[in-house]
């Protein structure tokens, strides 16, 4: 973690904070889908711009991404990523049938956007409460496309950094999985850690 100069203590605190935030999101998902949801231990990594498009796996893979911009004391970007097939299953479970797939299916896209919004909202609200920082966020946007194209566009929306801190937690439930990710802007991480007294 040398390139962003985090001590192991700070890294632990960041993982723990993310874990608590993500647990709130997992509870929300569990209620929405009426299923048990398990979480992986969060990972914190520094990703150079050149590697950003493959941070969530194969850049050519088809994914669904819900994206919120975060403003306030710890600005950044929050993403919820689903594999396409998982997104279809989630939409089906929310009574929005996807016989023809997701393209042009406004009902299903809107349902998925709301799922992402609820999960990311629970995560960010928990983060704000734990750190006593003020966090606001945009309305959600959704995209169904190649993972590389989605991540490239997210990285170019707003501040341009050469290295991104990518904090992510994987979710898995009954035949559904997803990844919650938070990418703090420069300076944001310092505020987040500062609020934890580190």
């Amino acid at each position: 973690m040398d390139s962003i100069g985090l001590s192991s203590e700070q890294l632990d605190a960041l993982q723990e904070l993310t874990n608590i935030g993500a647990s709130h999101a997992a509870t929300a998902l569990s209620h929405l889908l009426q299923t048990r949801v398990v979480l992986n231990v969060p990972s914190v990594q520094v990703v150079p711009l050149q590697k950003v498009t493959s941070v969530a796996g194969d850049p050519s893979s088809l994914i669904v991404a819900v994206y919120l911009k975060v403003f306030g004391d710890s600005p950044g970007k929050a993403l919820f990523l689903f594999d396409y097939e998982d997104a279809l299953r989630i939409a089906e479970r929310l009574d929005t049938p996807c016989g023809e797939g997701l393209y042009g299916n406004e009902m299903a896209l809107s349902a998925l956007k709301e799922v992402g919004n609820i999960l990311l909202g629970s995560f960010l609200t928990a983060l704000a409460r734990l750190t006593k920082l003020k966090l606001n966020f945009s309305v959600p946007a959704i995209a169904v496309d190649m993972a590389g194209a989605i991540l490239d566009a997210v990285m170019l929306d707003g501040e341009y950094l050469d290295d991104w801190v990518f904090i992510d937690t994987k979710f898995a439930g009954n035949q559904v999985k997803g990844t919650l990710a938070f990418l703090p802007d420069s300076g944001s991480l310092k505020n987040l850690l500062g609020a934890l007294g580190l």
Binding site: Q50, T53, G148, A149, D152
Partner: peptide, 23 residues
């Protein structure tokens, strides 16, 4: 050709970029 890279080659090779968004 990764993000922000430049590559030069000649026939019969191909240059490939996967998943261009705003780039």
């Amino acid at each position: 050709v990764g993000m922000a890279e430049i590559k030069i080659t000649k026939a019969p090779n191909r240059l490939v970029t996967t998943g261009l968004g705003s780039c």
